[in-house]
């Protein structure tokens, strides 16, 4: 059983609770254990860094230090948390001064940022640690009938200088995983593009135009559903789907799954168990 420090994203604790719930269900099946971090704090959601770069470094140095204290890699299941914490890590690793300043403060709590724990996405753990072969073997109910539009979201890909797992413009990891689960991932242009979440509250019209285009492309590609590794993308593509389509004069609807849900489905869990009925768009 490989253990990880599991960082609980704010959104998964409030709006998309089904993500952590589904991971809880199947993690042991795949031989991994996500040890929840209760003391961690909000990463700043790609916002704190320009409000106060130093607080941003502090909070995330602390988050990583908490994982390091347990000697575990930090794993997230939200793209933006991934990008944000990795950005902080990069800044800390590149600046001795910043690291020293932050550690001076963290020291009082008995914490130290050393840079030893990696910050990884659940998707990466599934592919690199669990392995596609193992996953393939464990699948009980393959997603064989589904044409799936993979939607990566931005912050698992870009900036590549911070993320670097996939080609930022031609990603493959999610496609590979979906194929291992027995589904058929279909090509469509928007799969590596943006969902619009980060302007949702700032420029809603633009944001929903972005979402509508992704939805339209997936539907035109005759996908049965969309799968995303990011709860923020899910919130827009699912929660705001009706509004986005209406604004762009489009009809129809398409279910949107979390990555953790389709893993659960393939491993034999029911929609009810996985919390899929909490979605806004009826599956």
């Amino acid at each position: 059983m490989k253990r990880y420090a599991y960082y609980q994203s704010c959104i998964n604790e409030s709006m998309t609770k089904e993500v952590d719930r589904s991971i809880d269900l199947w993690q042991k099946d795949l031989g991994i254990e996500m040890v929840k971090m209760h003391e961690s704090a909000c990463c700043g959601g790609s916002n704190l860094d320009f409000v106060s770069p130093k607080h941003f470094a502090l909070v995330n140095a602390r988050n990583i230090a908490l994982a390091e204290k347990q000697g575990l890699d930090l794993v997230v299941s939200c793209n933006t948390c991934l990008m944000t914490i990795r950005t902080a890590k990069k800044k800390l690793d590149e600046s001795v001064e910043l690291k020293r300043e932050v550690n001076e403060i963290l020291g009082k709590e008995g914490l130290e940022y050393r840079g030893t724990s990696q910050v990884r996405h659940l998707l990466w753990v599934l592919i690199d640690d669990v392995g596609l072969d193992t996953i393939r073997k464990k699948v009980k109910t393959p997603l064989s009938k589904l044409r799936i539009a993979p939607f990566y979201g931005c912050h698992i890909l870009r900036p590549s200088s911070v993320l670097g797992k996939d080609d930022p413009l031609e990603p493959t990891s999610l496609d590979l995983l979906l194929d291992a689960l027995g589904g058929k991932s279909i090509p469509y242009e928007h799969k590596n593009r943006c969902c619009g979440f980060h302007t949702l509250l700032v420029a809603e019209e633009e944001s929903l135009n972005v979402a509508a285009e992704a939805l339209r492309e997936a539907m035109e590609a005759k996908a049965d559903c969309i799968v995303t590794p990011c709860p923020l993308c899910h919130t827009v593509l699912d929660g705001y789907q009706a509004k986005a389509l209406r604004q762009s004069g489009l009809r129809g609807s398409i279910p949107v799954f979390h990555l953790s849900e389709v893993v659960g489905l393939a491993l034999g869990y029911s929609e009810r168990q996985l919390g899929i009925r909490r979605h806004i768009v009826t599956v």
Binding site: R158, S160, L169, R193, H198
Partner: peptide, 10 residues
Amino acid sequence: DCTHCYRCQE
């Protein structure tokens, strides 16, 4: 209004 998608940079 920027949505931090990082496509410009990439």
